[in-house]
Design a protein around this nucleic acid. Structure first.
Lengths: 258, 258
DNA sequence: AAGTGGTCTAGACCACTTG
DNA sequence: AAGTGGTCTAGACCACTTT
């Protein structure tokens, strides 16, 4: 029979007492995010088991599980039955495609091949400063890439990063990274991308992009403006993508299982 | 102390015994979806309370809650503390915007004003038949609309419906509906849209759309091809939208709270 | 065999809405 | 005050992975 202890047992718990109106499992979730965001529990690392975590936070296993379940739904944690719970690593194909929504019109999804075109340091434009929440004269890195699918260049990306958030990032480091760009942010700078907003429109291709993609002047292209966020909704990257949609689409799934 | 009854208690339960590898709460979820999809529990209706449902399905309240929670996450059910649990009605603003991703570039989101342009019955084109999973010669309804934001026409929609799924739908009925188009599907034909796939690309505006939107020939526009689904992933609607993105964007949020 | 997460139980108490 | 969902507990047993 449940014993119904008072939930505000003033113990030596490492968990702050729930604030006014707050609930226990969200406090647990916040604490777990803090541990991950601060780098104390790095990507790929295993968490202690459920029983141990429940004891540390002075909550029942059910409550601990509820916090962990929300983080798993957010792809921030990964659980494997029989093995343990791990901090998400942003590495698997599934995760890559969470942020890459360009698909061939016919045939299966595939990874793009990326070729660096330019790497430069400059002062932020007003648009860049606004998107990245920087002051006007902040220093930024601008990285231009051409992405190909099936051997054809279809996307021109311009990535803008705050220089202070990615100290010492070099062209060579960028080019020789082992995995995806977001894996580099995470592995080298501790910045985990957990979400992004995209605004898409149609426009005539600019001469610069036309040259990179081999398009005739004035061809209609998609322009995608993406701001990627890390843990506290803090902007981490601005990316302008110009897409030749002759053979590919921008795909959005609003499916809700069932 | 929990008594741990054998979970396969052969009772007079209305719930099928879990299939190989299945889990209880998913069986409960399936049964609830079946009740809703069949119209036995119509949109807006209240479900029995948790205790009663748990008894009907011969599961604990925790298990019942888990099934209901997933349906709430899918917006198929709506819970209100102190009042009850209700079948979702597809009516509130939030829900509308789940499927309407066009936003002004500057300023707040708003509802579009819709004007019917054409309503016709015809044989399905091969593209329409494929999207709606119809046989080649099936009869379809084609409905053309112009949507305006801030008084300016910005979207030309062509909706294609299988005539058999929307029997007797008339132009007058469509024009005089009280709410959104998806509310009409639900209220008049029992078809609840629970998800959609969209493929977006850039192209030059066609003469027909240019005339409706007041655009110069060859202007770049977004073309959105949406297939909306009802409960069993069954396609319910094909919608081709042509969007003048001079003042609006197609917005996609991949935010994962935190 | 030991350890992990996955599912499920049978309650308790709380917050909120309604009569 | 009665009824509802919201949170939380303290376990049990199962499925899976690793040693």
């Amino acid at each position: 029979m449940p014993s119904a202890l008072p939930s505000s047992a003033s113990s030596a718990s490492s968990l702050a007492r729930p604030a006014r109106g707050a609930v226990l499992y969200r406090e647990v979730k916040k604490q777990l995010i803090a541990d991950i965001g601060s780098g104390r529990t790095p990507p790929g690392a295993a968490l202690p088991n459920e029983k141990e975590l429940a004891e540390r936070f002075q909550v029942s296993i059910g409550t601990l599980r509820r916090a962990v379940e929300e983080l798993v739904a957010d792809h921030i944690l990964v659980r494997q039955q029989g093995r343990g719970t791990f901090v998400g690593k942003l590495d698997e194909a599934r995760f890559m495609f969470q942020f890459f929504k360009i698909e061939p019109r016919e045939g299966a999804r595939e990874f793009p091949v990326l070729k660096l075109h330019a790497f430069a340091r400059a002062r932020a434009t007003p648009q860049e400063a606004a998107a990245l929440a920087l002051h006007g004269a902040a220093s930024v890195l601008r990285i231009d890439n051409v992405l190909s699918l099936r051997g054809r260049p279809v996307i021109h990306d311009r990535i803008t990063l705050a220089a202070t958030q990615f100290p010492g990032l070099t062209r060579a480091q960028f080019e020789r990274r082992p995995g995806t760009i977001y894996e580099l942010y995470q592995a080298a700078f501790g910045i985990t991308v957990v979400g992004a907003d995209e605004r898409v429109r149609a426009e005539r291709v600019t001469p610069a992009s036309a040259a990179l993609l081999g398009l005739a002047a004035g061809t209609p292209v998609l322009r995608i403006e993406r701001v990627a966020f890390t843990f506290d909704q803090k902007p981490a990257e601005l990316r302008i993508s110009v897409v030749d949609t002759d053979d590919v689409d921008y795909v959005s799934r609003m499916r809700q299982q069932v």
